[in-house]
Design a protein around this nucleic acid. Structure first.
Lengths: 255, 255
DNA sequence: CCTTTATTGATTGATTTTGATTGAATATAG
DNA sequence: CTATATTCAATCAAAATCAATCAATAAAGG
């Protein structure tokens, strides 16, 4: 029996009985409990059902359109790998910040596999993604910037100042050795700076297309970046960053 | 038997008999009393029932808060009319606050017909609606509350204090003459209070089903409500509100 | 045909849930 | 108000369930 077929039948059975045990499903579909668990895990990560200890429960609103959705995407595969490498740095009960940007959004999608996180973010897309995740979710306020779907500007300052995050996962428009991170909007840069100043560890997620390009406004950071996660980087830039004290992670397929 | 299944049956039994002892539940579900106690504690924390010494009681006057994902909304027509009446109070270039709730969301949908508004909100649904509207959009920060999809709690205070809105359009779970507005969550009530304190004019949008019902936490307001917009109201309540200085608007089809 | 990849079921140690026991807290009766 | 009887929350060991791992099998591709 194919995976897709099993999933269809599981959903059908769930609609009938609301709650099902792993054992009952294993018997009904004539596969082992291990397989059922794998199916349930996968379906849970896609939001198709509630996973409970001992079985699964029906989720009334199976997959509504994600709020604040945005379509165009580039380098999705590279971004996926970068996000996976970033996920490896997150432990249960961590307090993290998620910046805007599509790479960070991919990371947000992976956070279902962690528990009891406190997630602070200025990205409405990330927030929408984590809405039903069960994690403690805090949004910094501020002016809404439609282009990036983030909250930016001076209004975000008071909240960000009253919060201390362990790890801040940042995105960027451009990155050069001389100027560091840069972005297109002054308010956006301001908010990024607020976040990074208060974070124990600043982790930049940037695919190779960002290197060497520079945007309008620099994001000043009073110390070197803690970690850079990317998909590919030339040795010269890499060595320069390492010399500054930045850990450089190149995510290959192994993650 | 799974946790979710037990919880469903407990709620079912409670609807039938209002009050149940731990022993009776233990016998009915064939689990130990310790397990029942743990279940009751968890359900009490989520506001699903009232915990009393020796057992559990059905929550008589705690209206189940409508879940946002719920497709089948109640009184949509009435809410539409109320929103239309509220829209009539908004001029171009106004600075307004939008609360959470489905009625306010309908109002947000109508705001396309205005220009150059500054909209402050704690509702992610309203923000999603206004994303592409061209209005200046500001979100107050705070903890995300999944049930209402709003940002609530003490973290929202600094932003709300630094902003002065002309008109605050508020929703509520319950409304009574003696207690005023009430809602199910203390943090939510706190944020509502912050907003109303700073607003020049407080405008409550509530359909008739809200009157006479009361939820857990009161939202204190240090002055009478400025305007109440509803679809139907009995003369006694109306006169009492008018005597307090509240303008009562009943939206018929004419809007 | 052989190699590579993906899927399955079994096994393992780790985690979660459960029921029993305890002393503390609460309610009831006198 | 005190004494007694319940009920409660905390703790612990046993049972159930889980995620991770591994070998066997099936499928895909060269």
């Amino acid at each position: 029996m194919l995976t897709a077929e099993r999933e269809q039948r599981i959903l059908q059975l769930l609609r009938d009985s609301d709650v099902l045990t792993v054992g009952a499903l294993s018997e009904a579909l004539e596969v082992s409990e291990a397989t059922i668990r794998r199916d349930l895990q996968g379906m849970h990560e896609r939001g198709l059902l509630e996973r409970i200890h001992g079985g699964a429960a029906f989720k009334p609103d199976a997959m509504p359109e994600p709020l604040f959705a945005d379509k165009q995407e580039q380098f999705t595969e590279a971004k996926q790998k970068i996000a996976a490498a970033a996920l490896a740095m997150i432990r249960d009960y961590d307090t993290i910040f998620l910046d805007g940007g599509s790479t960070i959004l991919k990371l947000a999608q992976l956070l279902e596999s962690r528990r009891h996180l406190t997630v602070v973010t200025n990205s409405l897309m990330a927030a929408a993604q984590l809405m039903e995740s069960g994690h403690h979710l805090i949004l910094c306020g501020g002016e809404f910037r439609a282009l990036s779907r983030t909250l930016v500007g001076p209004l975000s300052k008071p909240i960000l100042e009253s919060i201390a995050v362990d790890k801040a996962f940042m995105g960027t428009i451009g990155f050069t050795l001389s100027d560091g991170m840069s972005t297109t909007d002054a308010n956006e840069a301001f908010t990024k700076e607020q976040v990074m100043r208060r974070a124990k560890q600043v982790i930049l997620l940037a695919d190779h297309s960002k290197f060497g390009t520079r945007s309008l406004v620099r994001c000043q950071l009073d110390r070197p970046l803690d970690v850079l996660i990317t998909d590919a980087i030339d040795d010269k830039l890499r060595q320069a960053l390492v010399d500054l004290g930045t850990e450089v992670v190149v995510s290959d397929g192994s993650c």
